[in-house]
């Protein structure tokens, strides 16, 4: 058995490994572990009181009003995930395919599609908030201008349209990312395979479903997993466009906002409770970790090695 002695090579390896390990321990492992620990205590402001076991978890999951808030926020996250799966990843795949086929103007469009991704979320949020403005917003003014005034809505003020409006803004902002990942995947498909397909069929549909889609599976794994994590950690856009309370009456509330509000309070409405907030954070973390793990292993299994 080779022994790692504290000389020469061994020392060298230790010196290289210890700093990053310490960094990860201090800035990643420690905060996560302490958030876990916080969740088991009762809090008064930021002062830790008694150990309460699983009571905080019980409260956020089973005691009103937290129970319905948790369910409502979770339900909205699920809606966001599926809506973005279609609007962001689905559209991303189609855009990537169009770009890959080098339709006219592909160079310009490659940049145009990716450009919004570069914009800060704050800018996108304010931009869309202005677009949706009930009086001066470009959406309503356009609708009125083309004689569809009856379609003009207070988009961000109605429970039926608010979440959808924010989802559209998110899709516009991030659609370039899955596009880019899919495009990279498509460009990796060997040309021999494509030539072979061309001998068999001219149908684009067959080509997409039988060749391209299976071969970009690794890309799909990446964008699906990232979308899942992103959708359940969603915070910035609803925070800026709907506010900390998920206005109107919780219809844009998501777990991220709900956690923030509970843990840190809301100046214009409620109190802070660190224990409940930490319990929520732990639940969100465990949920995302488990499901993301399942998604990744399942999707990996269907990837084809070339």
């Amino acid at each position: 058995m080779p022994q790692l002695r504290m000389t020469g090579r061994g020392l060298w390896i230790t010196a290289l490994i210890v700093p990053p390990l310490a960094f990860v321990a201090l800035f990643i492992v420690y905060p996560i572990v302490s958030a876990f620990a916080y969740a088991f205590f009762d809090w008064q402001g930021l002062k830790r009181l008694d150990f309460v076991g699983l009571e905080n978890f019980h409260t956020v999951l089973f005691v009103e009003p937290y129970r319905s808030w948790t369910i409502n926020a979770f339900k909205n996250n699920v809606i966001v995930f599926f809506a973005l799966m279609v609007l962001q990843n689905g559209l991303g795949f189609i855009l990537a395919y169009a770009l890959w086929r080098e339709l006219p103007g592909a160079r310009f469009h490659r940049i145009a599609v990716f450009l919004p991704v570069v914009l800060s979320t704050i800018i996108v949020a304010y931009l869309f908030k202005l677009f949706y403005h009930p009086l001066f917003g470009v959406v309503n003014i356009t609708l009125k201008g083309i004689g569809l005034g009856w379609l003009a809505q207070p988009w961000l003020g109605q429970s039926g349209t608010a979440l959808g409006s924010i989802i559209v803004a998110q899709a516009w902002h991030m659609v370039g990312f899955p596009t880019l990942v899919f495009l990279a995947g498509m460009q990796r498909i060997p040309s021999e395979i494509l030539d072979a397909v061309r001998m068999e069929t001219e149908s684009e549909w067959v080509k997409i479903t039988k060749i391209v889609w299976p071969l970009v599976a690794p890309s799909a794994t990446i964008v699906f997993t990232l979308l899942f994590v992103g959708a359940f950690n969603w915070f910035e856009l609803p925070y800026i466009m709907g506010g900390l309370d998920g206005s109107p009456f919780g219809s844009t509330d998501v777990l991220g906002l709900y956690f923030y509000r509970t843990a840190f309070g809301n100046v214009s409405a409620g109190q802070q409770d660190f224990g409940l907030g930490s319990a929520l954070a732990v639940i969100i973390f465990i949920f995302i970790a488990i499901v993301a793990g399942v998604i990744t292993t399942r999707l990996r299994a269907r990837e084809i090695q070339l």
Binding site: Y66, F249, S268, A269, G270, Q271
Partner: peptide, 18 residues
């Protein structure tokens, strides 16, 4: 009514929006 959860503010704000 802002001493506990749900606070009166949280409730009235959401309910009035409804």
């Amino acid at each position: 009514f802002r001493y506990g959860e749900p606070s009166g503010s949280v409730l009235i704000q959401g309910e009035m929006q409804k």
